[in-house]
Structure formats: C-alpha cells, structure tokens
C-alpha cells in the first residue's frame, strides 16, 4: 500500500506543531518555525552526535561515577561496579533499574539511531513500519537514561555530612550526562520525516 508523504503531495509539515503549509511557505504561520522540506544535514548531524555519544560512553563506564568519602576513607565506584555492589547487597530491583537505565538504555538508543540513519540512507524503500516503531521506542526509553545522573545528583545532595560521609560526583557522571545529552541531540537532529520517504530524496537532490 503506497501512501503519499506530505512532500509528495506538495506540502511541508511543520516539525513543531505539525501544521501543513504549502511548499513555498518559508515560516510556519502558526509557530513561526522555519520550514524546510527535509533537514538536509539531518543524517550527518545525527551520526556526529552518535559518535560523540559513543566516545563519551567509554569514560562514562570506566571512570568512577562517584566518590564516597566515609570517615576519611575514599571509595570510588563505577556504574557497573555500583550495580554489582547493589546486586550483592540483594537490592535487586534498584540494581536492575540502574543497570537498565545506565547501561542498556543508552546502548539501545545509540544502536536504534544508528540503525535508523543507516536504514534511511540505504534502505529507504523498506522497513518503514519498523523504522516507525524504533523511532517511537527511542522517544520512550530516552527519557529514562537520565536516571543515573539523577541518582548521583540526589546522593551528592543528600550525603554531605562532613567527616562522616560525603559523596562527590566523579568524572563519569559528567561523561554520562554527556552521553544522555548527545543521544538526545542525536534523536532531535534526526528528521523523522525521512522515515517515511519512499524515494531517496537526498539522491534526487543531486
């Protein structure tokens, strides 16, 4: 079943409010967003943000996410180390939540976005339905990946008891926030309208 996209029908969809405007309209009459038939550098930008996310993902997992200073003794913990500690302390639920939010979700998001980029670029005519599902999935899971940064932020705020116990965020917290941010930018810069294009609009632009 072939469905015409707005562009094919001679319209431009506003990416903010969804209003259809004529193809020669420059600004959305409703929300004043600049209208473009397709974001030209969308795939490139997404890929660039994803590369940054992958680069940041390494220190986010190998460097300590937080330092615990307990009675003048420092402990440092990485994300994986923290999950293992929690699991060993039989806090299975929290361990699973942290594990999903901190390790699984960013990976899923990065992998899906990569797949979307590759799929849009080379297999435009196929997998439109899968692309739709995957794109929605990134939107659902994406918001959970900040949980780890929040955990650290809350712990740091809570445990500032001077000599007894103090928690200090580690370099991985910053890197991890960077991962979350860059994946968000990657998702944002991905022009979702490309998902449903039958023909390679980019190819036609030669």
């Amino acid at each position: 079943m072939l469905v015409k996209t707005a562009l094919e029908a001679g319209y431009i969809t506003c990416q903010t409010c969804g209003k259809l405007s004529a193809i020669d309209v420059v600004k959305c009459p409703l929300c004043y967003r600049n209208l473009a038939p397709r974001q030209l550098k969308s795939l490139q930008n997404t890929l660039a943000w994803l590369c940054t996310a992958i680069l940041l993902y390494l220190p986010a997992n190998f460097l300590p996410i937080m330092f615990t200073q307990q009675f003048s003794q420092y402990y440092s913990a990485t994300i994986v180390g923290g999950v293992i500690d929690l699991w060993q302390q039989q806090a299975y639920f929290i361990a699973i939540v942290i594990f999903m939010a901190s390790i699984v979700v960013p990976i899923i998001k990065i992998v899906i976005l990569l797949w979307l980029v590759v799929s849009v670029k080379y297999y435009r005519e196929h997998h439109q339905k899968q692309r739709s599902i995957m794109y929605r999935l990134t939107e659902i899971v994406g918001r959970w990946s900040m949980i780890d940064v929040f955990v650290v932020a809350i712990l740091v705020a809570l445990f500032q008891l001077g000599g007894v116990i103090t928690i200090i965020p580690g370099p991985a917290a910053l890197a991890f926030a960077g991962v979350v941010a860059t994946t968000m930018f990657a998702a944002k810069s991905f022009d979702s309208r490309l998902i449903w294009d039958h023909v390679n609009t980019e190819g036609k632009q030669h």
Partner: peptide, 11 residues
Amino acid sequence: RPKLSSIWLIP
C-alpha cells in the same frame, strides 16, 4: 550535495 555538517566538530 550538502557539505559536511559543523556538528562533526563535536565528536
């Protein structure tokens, strides 16, 4: 064909 995006500077 669009030139390389400036976003690439970030990675």
